[in-house]
Design a protein around this nucleic acid. Structure first.
Ligand SMILES: [Mn+2]
Ligand SMILES: [Mn+2]
Ligand SMILES: [Mn+2]
Ligand SMILES: [Mn+2]
Lengths: 217, 217
DNA sequence: TTCATATTTTAGATAAGTCTAAATTTTTTA
DNA sequence: TAAAAAATTTAGACTTATCTAAAATATGAA
């Protein structure tokens, strides 16, 4: 099978390609905290294994085989995150690093049984969709709070920033996945936003937070 | 922390030292399916880290620090095996290889919460004791069936051979952990043994099986 | 006790994954 | 469109963990 490093590169390329399509060497290097020269070395190896489409200086994309592997790893990552939160009572800001290790446990049968044990969850603790055992998942179009207008309402369904400080902040504000919110005000001056929760509590968030908090309408 | 290879060496030395005290280079090489020269290289590294006591040509033993790490890995291995059998419904012959990977997941908090989630089990699916979060466990003195006399009885509490074929065979014979058995006959000619279960079913096992099936009296 | 054999260590290579520094190619800017 | 800047690749080196072959040490049988 594939090494841990190869799996991490494939997953990284998959995530970067969601916005960009073709992914550059420097993007990968930045995302994996490594050097561009190291990335080039690995790209050659992945291209030899037919997991990416790669032409020198032109960036890369995943082949179908590469994408399948990447989605498999993401499935494992998200299922383990769900397990850690739902069964072991970790907070949503504590699980990512552990899942980074657990996503490389190789057994497919293990992950399928874990999936079944937890009742085939559709979303991980951060609202991201969990691919099924065939790699299928539907991604709902989400909008950042910053893209909404006054009086629009929706359900908190995802985050753009997965960092611990951001997630902890959201939890303290009770802005967690599944909560229904309505935009009550948008301050022109600094683009900060006022929200109302179901319990009519009013919460003010900065433009930065509004950019990273995703809503389904 | 320690690399995966280092952890595997420490665990291996721990297991070999249970019988022998001091462990030889060749024993480790045989157990890890590697070459004596590779073992020597690693022993130097582990000695530098003060995890083993090592003098050239004289074999090795674990230091307290090394033993603590080894027991921690064994704790993880056995807890994951328990999880796989009790929560994910794997058979006892299917879990060892998966646990070999999972025992290297680093988080201590994860394993402590897993332990709690499962109600602090005392033994893994093969009857081996699970160390607690301080590394403590009591190992009961077990005897192979081959060491018992006619009419002696006891409870199946462990196995010496953890291979899939052996465990599958035992399961088919319903000779599983916790079953109470009584020796009804010992054939002088080939040292095979006849056992009686609680349900008065009579089972004949070879000397080899009798050697690998452990009983607590 | 001595020598043949077994065990262990050393020497020198290899592969994976990473790095720095230099060379090359592409892109931008003037 | 030609130089400057940025991006990418190549060259060569390092670390970890492995290997084979040769050398060193220990062991045990005569
Ligand atoms: Mn994550
Ligand atoms: Mn997640
Ligand atoms: Mn095991
Ligand atoms: Mn076990």
């Amino acid at each position: 099978m594939n090494t841990l490093a190869e799996e991490n590169y494939l997953k990284c390329i998959y995530h970067l390609a969601i916005d960009a399509g073709v992914v550059s060497t420097n993007q990968i290097a930045a995302s994996l905290n490594t050097r561009a020269s190291s990335v080039t070395d690995m790209l050659k190896k992945l291209a030899d294994k037919a997991l990416i489409n790669y032409t020198r200086y032109q960036g890369v994309s995943l082949t179908d085989a590469g994408e399948k592997i990447a989605i498999g790893i993401i499935r494992k990552h998200r299922l383990w995150e769900y397990f850690l939160v739902e069964k072991l009572n970790f907070k949503w800001d504590q699980v990512h690093e552990m899942a980074e290790e657990m996503e490389h446990i190789s057994s497919e049968e293990l992950i399928d049984r874990l999936d079944e044990f937890m009742g085939h969850p559709k979303h991980d603790p951060h609202g991201d969709p969990i691919p099924d055992c065939n790699g299928n998942f539907k991604s709902v179009e989400l909008k950042p709070v910053s893209a909404l207008a006054i009086n629009q309402c929706g359900v908190i369904s995802g985050v753009r920033d997965h960092s611990s400080p951001f997630l902890q902040y959201l939890e303290k504000q009770q802005l967690t996945i599944g909560k229904k919110v309505t935009i009550t005000d948008i301050i022109e001056y600094d683009h900060s936003v006022a929200l109302k929760t179901e319990t009519d509590k009013e919460i003010y968030i900065s433009r930065e937070v509004a950019n990273n908090l995703l809503i389904s309408l």
